[in-house]
């Protein structure tokens, strides 16, 4: 496990034996004094802190995320997450933005069913979808994710934890840890819950390079994860052109409704993706124009997709980011 290597371009960055010792000693101390269960006791089953969920189709429950960035006040509960109850087993689809958020979701499940939680599916790597995983570890489920998810979390997990501790405070993230999928999905798989089967598909790079969708055959409900945003400005963390292509493929899925990653808990399909499609198309068109006239990324992020400003929430938080990512991608055309 001690395969920590780093070819330092700067001579100051090196790992000394005492620092290794201090780090490992500290980790033991931290573990002894802050066991995982503490946060679960505070916000989990057995008290009033149970997530409010809506049954959008028979056996399909969604907890609506607030359209905001993750804060201590919202416990990271900003994404639409939920679960599907079969006749024999339960699958959780995304776990929320903290161990606390995850334990509230678990409490909502246990208020409705004592069936085993056999599967926890993560639709992609972002903290608001995976930070609640720890709340389900005790159930011993199979954690399912895109085959790129483990690599993506290896590259980002530590940064996600650190950055969000800065923003939310360490207490809000007590017990939160990065848990990688045990079952990586490359070709589509099916899982049986009794009474229904879930079809799980890994997509090419779009919102991220590890997006997964879940289709519930019984109710024809498509869980899109963050491949679909409504109200909350879409966030590009993969490929702009790739995402447009994935959306074309998703629209062909014969679903009655979709559960988007952000926005309403249920939207008619494929109509529900129209706003996002328009935004991404405007962004591509604006960026292509700016690149063709020799403008810099600095210039582009100030003006691209400005015409969409009033149509979305969190525009200022994410549009410049999308423009940066899109600019770097499209200038290779």
């Amino acid at each position: 496990m001690n395969t920590f290597h780093y070819t330092a371009p700067n001579k100051r960055m090196r790992l000394s034996a005492p620092s290794v010792f201090i780090a490992l000693a500290l980790s033991v101390v931290v573990c002894l004094h802050a066991p995982l269960s503490r946060s679960q006791e505070r916000c989990g089953a057995g008290n009033a802190l149970e997530a409010s969920v809506e049954e959008i189709a028979s056996g399909v429950y969604v907890r609506a995320g607030v359209t905001a960035t993750m804060t201590a006040d919202n416990a990271g509960a900003i994404a639409n997450v939920g679960f599907i109850i079969g006749t024999e087993a339960i699958a959780v689809i995304d776990t929320g933005g903290s161990a606390c958020d995850g334990s509230r979701l678990r409490a909502a499940i246990r208020a409705r069913s004592q069936l085993p939680i056999k599967f926890v599916i993560n639709t992609h790597m972002h903290p608001d979808h995976v930070f609640g995983n720890a709340a389900f570890v005790a159930d011993g489920p199979t954690f399912i994710g895109h085959h790129n998810l483990a690599r993506a979390l290896a590259a980002r997990g530590a940064h996600y934890l650190e950055a969000n501790r800065d923003i939310m405070g360490a207490a809000a993230l007590a017990g939160t840890e990065i848990i990688a999928p045990g079952l990586p999905v490359e070709d589509p798989i099916e899982i049986a819950l009794g009474g229904t089967t879930l079809e799980i598909v890994a997509h090419p790079t779009g919102h991220t390079d590890n997006d997964l969708t879940v289709f519930d055959r019984r109710t024809r409900t498509l869980w899109t994860g963050d491949l679909v945003f409504l109200e909350h400005l879409p966030v590009v963390d993969g490929s702009l052109k790739g995402w447009l292509a994935v959306m074309d493929a998703l629209k062909k899925i014969p679903a009655l409704r979709a559960v988007p990653g952000h926005g309403p808990v249920s939207v008619p399909w494929p109509r529900g993706v129209a706003d996002q499609e328009r935004y991404l198309a405007v962004l591509v068109e604006d960026l292509r124009g700016l690149i063709a006239t020799g403008r810099s990324m600095n210039d582009a992020i100030a003006v691209a997709a400005e015409s969409e400003r009033d149509k979305w929430l969190l525009f200022d938080e994410f549009n410049a980011r999308n423009a940066s990512v899109g600019f770097a991608e499209l200038e290779w055309e």
Binding site: Y6, M13, S19, V20, I22, S27, C31, P35, L36
Partner: peptide
């Protein structure tokens, strides 16, 4: 599982110390 999380925390701290 707690041991696993301890290891994870250990590595994070290792990273924190190493990157200082």
């Amino acid at each position: 599982r707690l041991w696993r999380s301890c290891l994870a925390i250990g590595f994070l701290m290792l990273a924190a110390v190493a990157l200082a």
